[in-house]
Amino acid sequence: MPYIRVSEKLPGIRSLFAFRPETATPMSELAEVLLHQPGTLSPADRELIATYVSSENDCYYCQTAHGAIAAHHLGGNEALVIDVKRDFEHAAISDKLKALLAIAGKVQRGGKNVQPEDVERARREGATDLEIHDTVLIAAAFCMFNRYVDGLATWAPTDLDGFRERAAKVARDGYLGVLGYIAEARASGNGS
């Protein structure tokens, strides 16, 4: 049961986006740039970083939603997403992604945990400064999203098919689609 009166039809962060469109817009645009727009890191890699951080933060909605999007980008390989969450150092992913996930995990526990050796390891595995930068920003942003979602006790469905269905849409269209239904919710008075 959410701590504030948000739409009962929308799960997780989407109920909060509809509640407060002014902050939803820049948050969605940030997610779009970090996770969906073309970059040197694949969308699957970036979604795995988001999923791993959300899992470490024990945020059910975010790790399930982004885990489903990562799996969609990986051709439906949900087992690999579980492997990454459980023990990424031994998962079937690139050494570069392992180094980036190690940095993301340190950011999740607190930014000051990131040490020069962590950055050197990522560089050794071929990560560019832009990729390291974006990894830290994805990890930091998801700590915000995770705390936002759980700090207000938002509701999330347990049916995984719903997550899979939505994941296919987000993987294709990105994160700005939410802005449309927020405007609708607003117009019909379902917002705040």
Partner: peptide
Amino acid sequence: AYRPEATTHLGAFTQEIMRGDGPV
């Protein structure tokens, strides 16, 4: 300054949450 296409949204977010006059 390094990634304005991403950080401009962080700036907009900060402006709204810190100075915005939304209903809440």
